[in-house]
Amino acid sequence: MNGVPMAHGLVLAAVLFALGLAGLMFRRNMVFMLLSLEVMLNAAGLAFIVAGTAWGQAEGQAMFLLVITLAAAEASVGLALLNQLYRRFKTLDIDTASGMRG
């Protein structure tokens, strides 16, 4: 066998994404939620790279660059929010910040 089937790369991306999603849903600590988000973003980037290399196009890597930028922006804002949460409630439990209800 010469080379990796594209489907395998995408399966890897899907598995990582599902793991990140599961983490996002069942963790209550905001640090872990942010980490799960990073995992999911990374999985999305992986999917882009797989598709890009499969077709021999550079756009996949360019898109990955955008995903990384998004991740950086998300991480900075998310960490600032985390900081505020901890300062106001003295805990990282996301369920304490549930004052905005309908």
Binding site: M25, F26, R28, I94, D95, A97, S98, G99, M100, R101
Partner: peptide, 18 residues
């Protein structure tokens, strides 16, 4: 009924989105 779903629980929102 809809406003009851706005419970302020972030994880609930994530689950519904999924």
């Amino acid at each position: 009924a809809l406003s009851r779903t706005q419970g302020g629980k972030l994880r609930f929102y994530a689950v519904s989105m999924v």
